[in-house]
Design a protein around this nucleic acid. Structure first.
Lengths: 123, 123
DNA sequence: TGCATATAATCGCTTAAGCGGGTACATGCA
DNA sequence: TGCATGTACCCGCTTAAGCGATTATATGCA
């Protein structure tokens, strides 16, 4: 029971819950992607991603300079059971604002072929 | 999104999550029942139930001296969607210890026709 | 009505944890 | 080395937890 409580505690923050919702719909994102879409500072993004990592909700993968995060997908974990159970619930509630940010961010990323050369952000 | 984060925050405590799991399996319980089964103090039980009430996860109903709590069942609320989605997950994880407590507690209650005349507890 | 009892909610206090901003540090690439 | 990316740590603030004591509400009885 405590294991589940810890998972829900990790989901009990708007920043982290939005991260999970984005990862549910996008599959994999690097820290700078999440910073850009959520419009938060790098240290804040990194800190919450570490929290999610230690809680077992996501996994990380380094590729050169970038660190990519994706949902923990091992079916045997409590975390994946929870995200599976609530996935539809929270992705359907991704705010329009966030969808818009996501859209413009990925558009810029494609144009620049790099997630962090967009002058309009502080990335 | 914040609404869901607040719900998960409410579930992110072992005491409150156990209360939700018990209410899922029992339907309705008074404060003294929850105190007894979870072996917690009255103030602790009351405080966490108020937390769940304000978070919209449960409703209360006074009947004489007793106050009964049950899950929020209005299908339109985010809270009920969440508890529905995770119900099987957490009730199947009700610890054996808790099931045992639940069993002995309800047995005593039936014998005494009163939840608070059991000398073996501090209720 | 007055009083004792049972149940539940709240208050005051202390302690622990979480969150945010900022900044120093580590890592990897050119 | 210089630069970009990401992490770790510090500080201040807020929230929430536990505990015991007190207060509020309802019931039962003389």
């Amino acid at each position: 029971m405590k294991a589940y409580a810890d998972i829900f505690k990790a989901l009990g923050d708007e920043t982290r819950l939005s991260m999970i919702a984005l990862l549910l719909s996008q599959g994999e994102m690097c820290v700078c992607d999440l910073m850009g879409v959520l419009a938060i500072s790098q240290s804040k993004a990194s800190r919450h991603l570490r929290y999610l990592l230690h809680a077992g909700l996501v996994t990380d993968r380094r590729e050169g300079v970038w660190v990519y995060y994706r949902l923990q997908e091992s079916r045997k974990t409590e975390a994946s059971r929870v995200t599976t159970a609530i996935g539809n619930l929270i992705t359907s509630r991704l705010s329009d604002d966030l969808k818009m940010r996501m859209h413009t961010w990925t558009a810029n990323k494609q144009n620049n072929d790099n997630c962090c050369t967009d002058n309009s952000t502080t990335c």
